[in-house]
């Protein structure tokens, strides 16, 4: 039963995207959408990771909302900081690749964490290996695993833990 629910969620998501991309509600569009979406959903019996692994509880949705706000804030902050670095004549960089640790277990949680790290203050995920992430940092402040984890990972992990575990 749970498996069936996953496929239904996938179907609804695909169909919604199809309608949004087409921007029309004509009979032909809807018909093609139903056929293609159900074919794809039928081919993926396990559903789709981002939907299946998401904790669809009130706490999960609230965490997703706060994650989004935090992410946008970090994205803007990171860009302003990088702009400062690029525009300054001395080019004050101090790059290096550090190792950090994550508590997240699910694939999707780790993917979102890696993506968020890449898009925020001077950090770029180079490799994701089990629970270890290797991060290129433009201005290295600490090479210690614990300290770097607190600096880079902790902010996002707090929300992702509730969303995906």
């Amino acid at each position: 039963m749970r498996k069936f629910g996953n496929q239904t969620a996938l179907f609804v998501t695909l169909f919604l995207f199809w309608v949004l991309i087409n921007g029309s509600l004509s009979l032909g569009t809807l018909l093609v959408g139903v056929v293609v979406s159900s074919a794809i959903a039928a081919m993926l019996p396990g559903g789709w990771d981002p939907l299946r692994e998401f904790h669809a509880t009130p706490a999960g949705f609230s965490a997703a909302y706060h994650f989004l706000i935090y992410f946008i804030k970090e994205l803007i902050r990171s860009n302003i900081r990088m702009a400062g670095v690029v525009l300054s004549p001395r080019l004050p960089i101090n790059p290096g690749i550090v190792k950090v640790h994550t508590k997240l277990k699910s694939k999707m949680g780790r993917l979102l964490l890696a993506n968020s790290i890449t898009l925020t203050p001077g950090t770029l995920t180079v490799m994701l290996e089990e629970e270890w992430l290797y991060v290129h940092w433009v201005t290295v402040e600490s090479t210690d695993i614990e300290a770097a984890t607190a600096h880079i990972v902790a902010g996002f992990e707090k929300y992702l833990e509730v969303m995906y575990g």
């Binding site: 702009a83 670095v85 525009l87 080019l91 770029l124 433009v138």
Partner: peptide
């Protein structure tokens, strides 16, 4: 600024940094 970073940064990893962030926002 992303383009400028692409020119000014000294190595590939720093260029990727300035490339992805600035251009996404």
């Amino acid at each position: 600024l992303g383009g400028l970073g692409l020119i000014r940064m000294p190595d590939l990893f720093n260029r990727i940094q300035s490339g992805t962030k600035a251009t996404t926002l």
